[in-house]
Amino acid sequence: MTSSHKQDVGKHGFEASDLPPFEDGALDVLKYFGFIDISLPLEIEIGSGKGTFLIQQAPQAPEINYLGIEYAKAYWRHAADRMRRHNLPNVRMLHAEAGFFLRNYVADDSVQQFHIYFPDPWPKARHNKRRLVQEGFLREVWSKLKVGGQISLATDHLDYFAWMEEHAAKVTDLFERHEFVSPESAGEGELVGTNFERKYREEGREFNGMILKRIG
Score class of each variant (00 low, 15 high):
residue 215 I to R: 13
residue 37 D to N: 15
residue 77 R to N: 09
residue 61 A to R: 15
residue 175 F to E: 01
residue 147 V to H: 03
residue 43 E to A: 14
residue 7 Q to L: 15
residue 97 E to W: 04
residue 70 E to P: 05
residue 83 M to T: 01
residue 25 G to V: 09
residue 198 R to I: 11
residue 174 L to C: 11
residue 110 S to P: 05
residue 47 G to L: 08
residue 123 P to M: 08
residue 21 P to M: 08
residue 41 P to N: 08
residue 59 P to V: 06
residue 195 N to A: 06
residue 100 F to E: 06
residue 30 L to N: 07
residue 187 G to N: 02
residue 183 P to Y: 10
residue 81 D to N: 15
residue 3 S to A: 10
residue 106 V to P: 07
residue 21 P to L: 10
residue 100 F to Q: 07
residue 135 E to R: 14
residue 206 E to S: 14
residue 45 E to S: 07
residue 103 R to F: 09
residue 94 L to T: 12
residue 91 V to R: 00
residue 111 V to E: 04
residue 185 S to P: 05
residue 205 R to F: 12
residue 53 F to C: 03
residue 40 L to F: 04
residue 95 H to I: 01
residue 52 T to Q: 15
residue 193 G to A: 10
residue 194 T to M: 03
residue 148 G to P: 01
residue 212 L to W: 03
residue 194 T to L: 05
residue 93 M to L: 12
residue 33 F to C: 08
residue 4 S to D: 10
residue 13 G to T: 08
residue 42 L to V: 10
residue 118 F to T: 07
residue 179 E to S: 11
residue 81 D to L: 01
residue 216 G to V: 11
residue 15 E to W: 14
residue 29 V to I: 11
residue 82 R to K: 15
residue 65 N to C: 05
residue 213 K to F: 05
residue 152 S to F: 00
residue 75 Y to W: 12
residue 115 H to L: 09
residue 75 Y to E: 12
residue 12 H to I: 01
residue 212 L to S: 08
residue 145 L to W: 04
residue 136 G to N: 11
residue 194 T to A: 03
residue 135 E to L: 01
residue 60 Q to P: 00
residue 17 S to P: 00
residue 76 W to I: 00
residue 172 T to I: 10
residue 107 A to K: 14
residue 131 R to I: 00
residue 29 V to C: 10
residue 99 G to Y: 11
residue 132 L to F: 15
residue 164 M to R: 01
residue 64 I to G: 02
residue 93 M to G: 12
residue 171 V to F: 02
residue 91 V to N: 02
residue 116 I to S: 08
residue 138 L to W: 08
residue 60 Q to K: 15
residue 188 E to D: 14
residue 158 L to N: 09
residue 211 I to D: 05
residue 81 D to E: 04
residue 169 A to K: 13
residue 49 G to F: 04
residue 159 D to N: 11
residue 119 P to Q: 04
residue 133 V to S: 02
residue 172 T to V: 13
residue 159 D to V: 10
residue 61 A to V: 10
residue 143 S to I: 00
residue 23 E to W: 04
residue 159 D to G: 11
residue 133 V to N: 03
residue 174 L to D: 01
residue 38 I to P: 07
residue 29 V to P: 00
residue 123 P to H: 12
residue 50 K to L: 11
residue 125 A to W: 01
residue 190 E to N: 06
residue 177 R to N: 02
residue 208 N to H: 13
residue 2 T to F: 01
residue 31 K to Q: 14
residue 169 A to H: 11
residue 100 F to I: 03
residue 208 N to S: 15
residue 126 R to T: 03
residue 149 G to Q: 04
residue 45 E to C: 06
residue 153 L to I: 05
residue 37 D to F: 07
residue 31 K to P: 00
residue 20 P to H: 09
residue 56 Q to P: 00
residue 15 E to Y: 14
residue 17 S to I: 09
residue 207 F to L: 14
residue 199 K to F: 04
residue 98 A to I: 09
residue 91 V to W: 00
residue 27 L to I: 13
residue 126 R to D: 03
residue 155 T to Y: 04
residue 16 A to D: 09
residue 202 E to K: 15
residue 27 L to E: 12
residue 132 L to W: 08
residue 74 A to L: 06
residue 14 F to P: 11
residue 23 E to T: 15
residue 5 H to F: 12
residue 197 E to Q: 01
residue 135 E to N: 06
residue 207 F to Y: 07
residue 61 A to C: 13
residue 108 D to I: 02
residue 148 G to D: 06
residue 97 E to R: 13
residue 49 G to S: 07
residue 204 G to K: 09
